[in-house]
Amino acid sequence: MFIMYPAQFNYFAPKSVDETLELLDKFRDDAKILAGGQSLIILMKLRLFSPKNIIDINKIPGLSYIKEEEGYLKIGALTRYSDLEYSDLIKSRYPLLYESIKHLADPIVRNVGTVGGNVCHNDPGNNLPSVMLAYNAEFLVKSISKQRVIKAIDFFIGPYQTALQSNEMVVEIRIPVQEPKNSGAYMKLERRAGDFAIVASAVNVSIDDNGYLKKVGIALGAVGSTAIKADKAEEFLIGKKADKEVIKKASEIASEQTNPSSTPFGPSAEYKKAMAKVLTFRAFKNALRKVGVEI
């Protein structure tokens, strides 16, 4: 404890995904992938985590990209947060993702931290797990012997735990391309700018030409052991016309799906549950306003 000098480790800097997968297969739980390292290196400095082998994937070409293709927004695992922040495509078409990135850590950390690293680290207080759940994102995962696609809902299984096997790595994040009348918003309550969320709510919503809710994604951060998809609230809303009462009800349903615990000397579970509702309501309010619906 109290240290800021990491323990020794063996360092590998593979030049390809295949080479990485070979190393992963060899070391399994004794290895850790270093992507942006903005969580990993902190843990290593404090010696809360001291992996024997570090596999640095930063020297692999072709793992950083943002493109729409085959009905998906495809994001390379090594894409930095700031690449998303300064992407016109993300800013104009993926407001939920954009807002969540703007509220992720700080501008300097965003230059280094990666989307792949964020989802794999699966910190319950971090931004992207809930965003991925709200978008119904998928992750393209590879191991030496196979590749598979894991849905976000199946991926985030517990605090700092994912469905990844020890020999697998995420190579791509896939978010379904959003419909024309789509919007979204990310509301994060934090102690201070750049801090982890006290509670966060991610909302992605599409409406039809008559103003009825066509697609809805809601997920909440920091109110359970991992990000929580508010599927009951989503179901409740589909096909309904968005008004204040409906959204309030949905926010309440979403809040009921959360399972927060009280923070010592900090916010109570009761507060967090209440905030889940308030923030979800506000996220909808902001998102709907962008598609011309006032509630």
Binding site: L189, R191, S251, G266, P267, S268, Y271, V278
Partner: peptide, 19 residues
């Protein structure tokens, strides 16, 4: 003056908003 302290007080006084 953390927000959760203020909210708790508002709740006790019946002055919270759910919006």
């Amino acid at each position: 003056l953390w927000p959760w302290k203020i909210w708790q007080i508002l709740k006790e006084k019946g002055a919270v908003s759910d919006e």
